[in-house]
Write a protein that binds this DNA or RNA. Structure first.
Lengths: 154, 154
DNA sequence: TTGCTCCTCACGTCACGTGAGGTGGC
DNA sequence: TTGCTCCTCACGTCACGTGAGGTGGC
């Protein structure tokens, strides 16, 4: 009777539609070790839980926003994956030093991601400014042509 | 005949090194009609001028920062290409209405680029905020673990 | 039972990477 | 002349796209 919503699992097609990718992409990520389904039912069906959903979203965000290769994604998220794998045992009373070790490993990777984001932000900002000024130039030029429409210059 | 500003031309290897891509990329872009060398010497050598340099830089920036496919690049820069092609004849006394037509065609494309940039900026900003808060959480958690252990700081 | 979704090959595609083998220009 | 860079194939690779042919679950 206790059908907790957080226990909901997704079949590969449901996950794909929810995240906005094809099933091929998800299977390919599994092929290269980027994302394994939490459960593989006896009937060979892949089943994904909520942690898989966030993991996949994270991967896609890094891929799309930072333009990283899948190899780079693996390197940048390995600690996260380890952390997720250990999260279930978190209440299994690991020692504080063990916990600290996991957290300590995750920090530099998040810092690296943040640096990449900031670099991109600067480049995008520069690009945006250039486009804005180019647009203004074009609009001014257009006005000039339309004003002198009646006159022919050589 | 008016003297050109900069008549310096680049061979494909020089262009590649200056922009930071391989010669294969440049040849591939020519293959699919994205970037043609201004001059093709009798010896079959490709020669690029300053306008080709900026064109290529522009393409790469759109590709890298916005993650567009080469088909999308072609669509977003076709007007620019036409404008560049006509720039040499600009002083050939085209009528004002002709000039206005060229400029008028370029404006919506620049506007579309700007919109894409702004959308990316928002998504990157959201991502950056999330990473920052995640980082803070991790650091706070780390401190908790290290408290009570009388550890020295680094 | 009937669709629908799932499964595993496996070839196709996009955007190049990487030689092979040869010619030309400084 | 000697290197170096250029040329054109052409096969390889990465990250999937797209069926083919078959099985399983709601």
């Amino acid at each position: 009777m206790t059908t907790r919503r957080r226990d909901r699992t997704y079949r590969i097609g449901e996950l794909a539609e929810r995240i906005g990718v094809t099933t091929r992409t998800i299977r390919y990520y599994e092929e290269i070790g980027l994302l394994a389904p939490s459960i593989r039912s006896k009937g060979e069906q892949r089943l994904y839980d909520e942690s898989d959903v966030t993991r996949l979203q994270e991967l896609l965000r890094l891929r799309d926003l930072l333009g990283l290769s899948l190899d780079e994604l693996a390197a940048l998220t390995e600690a996260e994956q380890a952390r997720a794998a250990l999260r279930d045992q978190w209440h299994d009373n690991p020692s504080d030093s063990e916990k600290a070790k996991i957290v300590l490993a995750a920090i530099p990777l998040i810092e690296r991601q943040l640096k990449l984001v900031q670099t991109r932000q600067r480049r995008l900002s520069d690009f945006g400014k250039e486009l804005s000024s180019r647009l203004e130039t074009l609009r001014r030029r257009l006005e000039e042509f339309q004003e002198g429409r009646e006159q022919s210059r050589s």
